[in-house]
């Protein structure tokens, strides 16, 4: 399996391998790289290749749509098919419109928290959970470099209330069984002053969406 650091996935993303026999390129957020590579391995999806945009664009979703378009245009001649492993992810419908224009499929739903939990389940419970702050395996592992430091909380703890004052709990959506990550997630919640809840989701609708991609045209 490809070894790539959290830092690289956050800041730069991941380049496609571009090697045979991959005929499908999955274009994803760097925050999903480990899960998608795990799914490739578990399911022996050797026909799929992965490229990722920087995970830190989670914080600047206005960059995502143009970034996806650039990669699709760059690689569309190299693969039979490109699948965009993003949900709307804060693009306000612009990514969906762009994917339709480019003729590529994407994952349904508002964001990864929703498709990890299952879009139907998430939609049914969303109204009761508006005060939940979600973390995934990746977000737990990069919590300090992804949230804490860029938000200035390492230097200015007095900002905690301004950022998280309206939240009540952290929901850790676990993709894997990992005691170390669970302990870290619990610590994240304590630092944020929020209750902690762990919910094992596995890969949710991400797995379903990737499994739905035909092997070849």
């Amino acid at each position: 399996m490809i070894e790539v650091s959290d830092h690289t996935l956050t800041e730069q993303g991941l380049d496609a391998r571009g090697s045979d026999p991959a005929r499908v390129l999955v274009l994803a957020c760097g925050a999903l790289a480990r899960e998608i590579l795990a799914l490739f391995k578990i399911n022996k999806w050797d026909h799929m290749d992965l490229t990722c945009l920087p995970a830190k664009w989670h914080m600047t979703p206005d960059l995502i749509t143009d970034g996806v378009e650039d990669v699709v245009r760059k690689h569309r001649g190299d693969y039979d098919q490109i699948f965009v492993a993003y949900a709307d992810c804060g693009t306000g419908g612009l990514l969906e419109a762009k994917c339709a224009e480019l003729g590529v499929e994407m994952i349904a739903g508002p964001h990864c928290y929703s498709f990890f939990e299952g879009n139907d389940v998430f939609a049914a419970t969303a109204e009761d959970e508006i005060t939940a702050f979600y973390l995934t395996d990746f977000l737990v592992s990069v919590f300090d470099s992804f949230f804490w430091k860029p938000m200035g909380l390492d230097r200015h703890p007095e900002l905690l209330e301004m950022y998280f004052g309206n939240y009540e709990k952290v929901v850790y959506q676990a993709q894997t069984e990992n005691a170390e990550l669970t302990a870290k997630a619990r610590d994240c919640a304590a630092r944020m002053g929020l209750r902690f809840e762990r919910r094992f989701t596995g890969y949710g609708d991400l797995q379903t969406a990737l499994a739905g991609i035909p092997a070849a045209r």
């Binding site: 860029p150 938000m151 200035g152 909380l153 230097r155 200015h156 900002l159 301004m162």
Partner: peptide, 11 residues
């Protein structure tokens, strides 16, 4: 400037 600095200024 980034968000933390703006929030401190706003505060």
């Amino acid at each position: 400037l980034f968000v933390p600095e703006v929030l401190l200024a706003a505060n």
